[in-house]
Write a protein that binds this DNA or RNA. Structure first.
Length: 423
RNA sequence: GUGAGUGUAGCUCAACUGGUUAGAGCAGCGGACUGUGGAUCCGCAGGUUGGGGGUUCGAGACCCCUCACUCACCCCA
């Protein structure tokens, strides 16, 4: 309302968020469509939950000690004084919905998928954003390690459809509440014993998160870490058997995989199976998909004691490595000259659209030449020329923009030629 | 939160050791061709060089501050 000159750039998108422009949105739509079709093929059904939840939900499930909860959540107090958090991940919401609606009592298999935005207050970098999107799938009530293998096979199937190559499947077992504590204790002790010979980074990790030493990029640290105890030797009978079978099913599918003792997934609720699929083409944030089993979450919530497993896939990361065929537009550009022709064009466009033909007409004062130039530039398959003469006889000049050929066609001819008369 | 790098037109980039009016290609619009696109040629429009301060006769360039973006640590999708 002021008399001042308008700001050059009044506002811009919040740090770590991005507009998805029409050209990119095409690719998003296709990835989403392929993902949905794939999951439906495996018997999964979509479930949608709100973008925000009670803060407590994430504190209880994701874990008080995790980075996600400690420093990455968008948490605020609403006008009713409640603490609200924009979801940083999807799994807790699904678990909550199942308990709330007693979905576990329904006959349908509890296999769900979801696509939508997540929010984490991270410092943005390549492949990492504050608002990002995940494709998420979860299975509840299946204890068999075969399902852990099947969801990886399903992920592989999807990646293959999207022509994502150079991927690696990393797997691990983090044990359970019986066997993990002893392992962590011994690992910490082992790291403390050699602390002096580790790099400064790893010296810190020895205190905070010794599992991460396995992941150091400095060869000396990696060498030392090879001597550390591995979780796999600490697994109790049940977990060890689960892990063994899980891998044998992956072998059955012929899916190569590597055991990665570092794979803990930074989230408290995982039990037994954890896995990741990485790609060499992504930079430091090279994980396009990660997940695992979380058998304790439901009962910890005060819900039924049912097991669960699933994964989340980063859509931005997926898009940056997927090889999608360039989208081809197929529409007809209506070029008109004069007011009578304009009216004719409006009605013709309505007619064609009602038969499923995509039409574009623009309302600027342009000559025929300029309009055809537009049609060409915008990638129209056809141009329809409507002038006084054409209005008079009810037949129009239909030009094939690729071939450069042109014929005269009436209303009905158009439908047949454009090949959409069955719509 | 820590560290490094980069900011010039819508996009990609020029502008010598500081020198006069900051240029080009692409994209946009118009014309050559007033009813026939893509090629070519010509023209038009587009900038407070991210912002602020300083040094200097003179700053896009050098110094300081700030903001933004990028990459990395951490963590994760």
């Amino acid at each position: 309302m002021s008399e001042d000159k308008p700001e050059k750039q009044p506002v811009s998108a919040i740090k770590g968020t991005h507009d998805i422009l029409p050209k990119e949105a095409r690719d998003w739509q296709r990835v989403e469509a392929v993902a949905k079709a794939t999951f439906e093929l495996y018997g999964y059904r979509e479930i949608r939950t709100p973008v925000f939840e009670a803060t407590e939900l994430f504190e209880k499930s994701t874990g008080q000690t995790t980075d996600i909860v400690q420093k990455e959540m968008y948490t605020f107090t609403d006008k009713g004084g409640r603490s609200i958090t924009l979801r940083p991940e999807y799994t807790p919401s699904v678990a909550r919905a199942i308990i709330e609606h007693r979905l576990d009592l329904l006959p349908e298999p509890m296999r769900y998928y979801f696509i939508g935005p997540m929010f984490r207050f991270d410092k943005p970098q390549k492949g990492r954003f504050r608002q990002f999107h995940q494709v998420d799938i979860e299975v509840f009530g299946e204890n068999d390690p075969a399902i852990d293998a099947e969801i990886i096979e399903m992920a592989n199937h999807l990646l293959k459809k999207l022509k994502v190559t150079e991927t690696a499947v990393l797997v691990n077992s983090v044990g359970c509440r019986n066997c993990r504590p002893a392992y962590l204790k011994d690992l910490r002790a082992a790291a403390a014993a050699v602390e002096a010979s580790l790099c400064p980074d790893c010296q810190r990790k020895a205190e905070t998160n010794p599992l991460r030493i396995f992941d150091c990029k400095i060869e000396a640290c990696r060498e030392i870490a090879r001597g550390f105890p591995e979780i796999t030797t600490y697994l109790d009978a049940d977990c060890a058997e689960h892990f063994r079978k899980f891998r044998s099913y992956l072998d059955l599918y012929g899916i190569p995989h590597r055991i990665e003792p570092r794979l803990v997934r930074g989230i408290d609720y995982y039990t037994k199976t954890t896995f990741e699929i990485t790609t060499a083409k992504l930079g430091a944030q090279n994980s396009i998909l990660g997940g695992g089993r979380y058998d304790d979450m439901m009962k910890d919530f005060g819900g039924p004691d049912i097991s669960a497993t699933g994964f989340a896939m980063g859509v931005e990361r997926l898009l940056s490595v997927a090889e999608l065929e360039p989208a081809s537009d197929d529409f007809i550009y209506l070029a008109y000259m004069g007011n009578e022709a304009k009216k004719e064009a409006l009605l013709l466009a309505r007619f064609l659209r009602s038969h499923g033909v995509e039409c574009l007409l623009e309302f600027k004062e342009r000559g025929l030449k300029s309009q055809l130039g537009r049609a060409s530039k915008l990638g129209a398959s056809w141009a329809l020329i409507i002038g006084e003469e054409e209005v008079g006889k009810g037949r129009y000049q239909l030009k094939n923009m690729k071939e450069g050929t042109q014929i005269e066609a009436g209303k009905q001819d158009l439908l047949e030629i454009l090949g959409r008369s069955d719509h």
